[in-house]
């Protein structure tokens, strides 16, 4: 499990790595939220390209960050999704709340 934070004036990027389940999500949440609250960036990117395993805890993770970012009027985009992660995000209807991007920059 790893969380890498980088930012520009316009965007905060949170790159997740390793396995994202109910167990690891707790620590990832803490790190991500600390960065989000410190920057209050108008755009927050959650990059899943280095995630090797994810179950529905990952969907909950995106939902939680969406709520936080939305509370100050920011927007969330989720990038680096493979077919399986994309499918799980769609199951929860996340495409109505955040921008979902598949791997290789393919949008939708």
């Amino acid at each position: 499990m790893s969380v890498k934070i980088s930012s520009s004036p316009q965007r905060l990027t949170i790159a997740l790595g390793g396995e994202l389940d109910h167990h690891s999500a707790a620590a990832m949440r803490q790190e991500a939220d600390a960065a989000i609250e410190a920057k209050l960036s108008p755009k927050v990117r959650l990059d899943f390209s280095a995630v090797t395993f994810m179950d529905s805890a990952g969907v909950g993770f995106v939902l939680g960050r969406y709520r936080l970012v939305n509370s100050y009027g920011g927007r969330v985009e989720v990038t680096g999704l493979d077919q399986r992660l994309y499918r799980m995000m769609r199951m929860a209807g996340l495409e109505r709340l955040v921008t979902l991007c598949k791997k290789e920059g393919k949008k939708k």
Partner: peptide, 18 residues
């Protein structure tokens, strides 16, 4: 049922659907 959860918070309610 998809999206049903008793816990709220960060549980997506997707366990059985997945």
């Amino acid at each position: 049922e998809p999206l049903f959860t008793t816990l709220g918070g960060e549980r997506a309610g997707l366990g059985f659907a997945v």
